[in-house]
Design a protein around this nucleic acid. Structure first.
Lengths: 155, 155
DNA sequence: TATTTTTAGTTGACATATAAACTAAAATAA
DNA sequence: TTATTTTAGTTTATATGTCAACTAAAAATA
C-alpha cells in the first residue's frame, strides 16, 4: 500500500496535480474503508445510509437518502433491499403520501450503526493524527473552496 | 448542484469532518466528470486508461494498468474489452511471456485521448482558478500527508 | 529435469452506480 | 372536476468495482 502514496503519473500543471491528489487520496480512502465494514456490512455505501438514518432528527424517505448522499434513487432501492433483508432497516408506508416510504433503522440496525461508527471514528483519528489542528482546518477550508469551483462554471 | 457544496451531516470532530470533506469533494468531482467524457467514452475509468497509455514511456501490460490505477485485474479485463470493441486500444501478445498482453493505443485511441485530455485540462483550470498558487501547493502537501496516514497503521 | 509455486489474465457471483422507461399517486392547471 | 404534469419508487440495461475460482504459462526449487 505504501507505494500508492504517490500518484501514478506526472502532471503538466500543479493545479491538475492538486485535483488529482484529492481524487487519489479519496480512492485510497475508499480502498481502505471498503474492507473496514466487513463482515457486518457489504460496503461503505450501506454504512453511509445507516449513519445518516441514525444521525437524522427528521424522518427520511428514500428520496431524502438519495439527495443527501448523492446516490441515484434507483441505486437506493437496491441498497435498501439488501439492508432490509439483513434486518437493519424497515420501510414503513408514509402516513399521507402513498407513493413514499419512511425508512427507519431497526433496533439491531441502530446497534450496528453505532458499533461500526465507534470503530470508524477511532480509525479516522489514527489516520489524521499526524496532522496539526491548523492543517485539519486548512483541509476543510480548501476542500470547500474546490467544491465551490466544481459547483460553478457548469458540468 | 450548489446545495451539495455542504456535507450532508455534521461531525463530532473536526478531523472527521476534514476526512469527509476530501471524500465529499472527490464524490462531487466524480459526478461532474462522469458526464464529462460522454459521449466519446462511457466513464472516467476508461479515460484514465487512455491517459495512462498515452503518457507512459514504457509498454504496459494489463497488470501494469491495474497496479498503477489501483484497479483489480478482473476489472481491467472488462474495461479493455470495451475499449477494444470501440477501437481505442489493442492487445498484442507479449513477445516472450505468453501469459501477457501489451496494451497499446490505436491511432484513433491516441487521437481521442489527446482530444479529451485537452478538454479536461481546460476544465480543471476553471475549477481550480479560484485558488492561489500557495493554496494549490498546500492541497498537494496536505493530501500527501493524509495518504501517509492511510498507508500506516493497517487496514 | 521434474515438481511446486507464482503469475497474467479470464470468468462468474455479487455490490455499487447511473440513465431510461415504467407504474402509481400526488400536485397543478384547465 | 377533469386533464395534465410532476413526483416516489421500481425495473431493466449497462458500466464499474471486488473477490474467489479457474487456466495456462513462467519462475523457483527440489
Amino acid at each position: 500500500m505504501k507505494a500508492s502514496v504517490d500518484l501514478p503519473i506526472e502532471f503538466a500543471s500543479r493545479e491538475h496535480e492538486a485535483l488529482m491528489s484529492i481524487w487519489w487520496t479519496s480512492l485510497l480512502l475508499k480502498k481502505v474503508s471498503g474492507k473496514f465494514f466487513q463482515p457486518e456490512l457489504a460496503s461503505e455505501a450501506q454504512f453511509n445510509i445507516l449513519v445518516l438514518l441514525n444521525d437524522s432528527n427528521e424522518e427520511l424517505s428514500q428520496k431524502d437518502l438519495g439527495v443527501k448522499l448523492l446516490v441515484d434513487k434507483s441505486n437506493i432501492t437496491g441498497l435498501l433491499d439488501r439492508l432490509e433483508k439483513q434486518g437493519c432497516i424497515e420501510r414503513t408506508p408514509h402516513e399521507t403520501d402513498r407513493r413514499s416510504y419512511t425508512i427507519r433503522l431497526t433496533k439491531s440496525g441502530k446497534k450496528l450503526a453505532e458499533k461500526l461508527d465507534k470503530r470508524y471514528v477511532k480509525r479516522v483519528h489514527e489516520i489524521m493524527s499526524a496532522l496539526t489542528k491548523k492543517e485539519i482546518e486548512e483541509i476543510i477550508r480548501l476542500m470547500r473552496k474546490v467544491r465551490n469551483g466544481l459547483a460553478t462554471g457548469g458540468g
